[in-house]
Amino acid sequence: MKLNEIIEKLSLKVLTNLEDKDITGVYISDMLSDVMSKAGAGNIWVTIQSHKNIIAAANLIDIAAIIISQGTDIPEETIELANRYNVVLLGSDDSTFVLGGKLYQIGIA
């Protein structure tokens, strides 16, 4: 499935420049060390973390997009860094649990 399709189906807010990509799966974690060791290239990463060091972890393993859940405030510096490193940042008011369910429902796991 393409990222644009997921954005549309889940009504996600696009916070950065957008590059459509093939999505290989979903990884849910709030620990950077966990993502760095276990998430896959092309995954969507769902987290409540919004500190700019999430961009460093996402870029390292070529995460397709980060969805920041439960309406977390996202600092401008995080968005700036994401744009600089071509990391797509998306926002949602849903909880991580609900987002996980919705992603599963549309066929991404």
């Binding site: 709030d30 950077l32 071509n86």
Partner: peptide, 27 residues
Amino acid sequence: SSIKIVSFEMIDDPDSCAGEFIIDSSM
């Protein structure tokens, strides 16, 4: 795209480096 990893020994004063560490410092 690709990544390049270098040693911190290339940096004169590593303690003043303002890059982004991949560590969980608050969770």
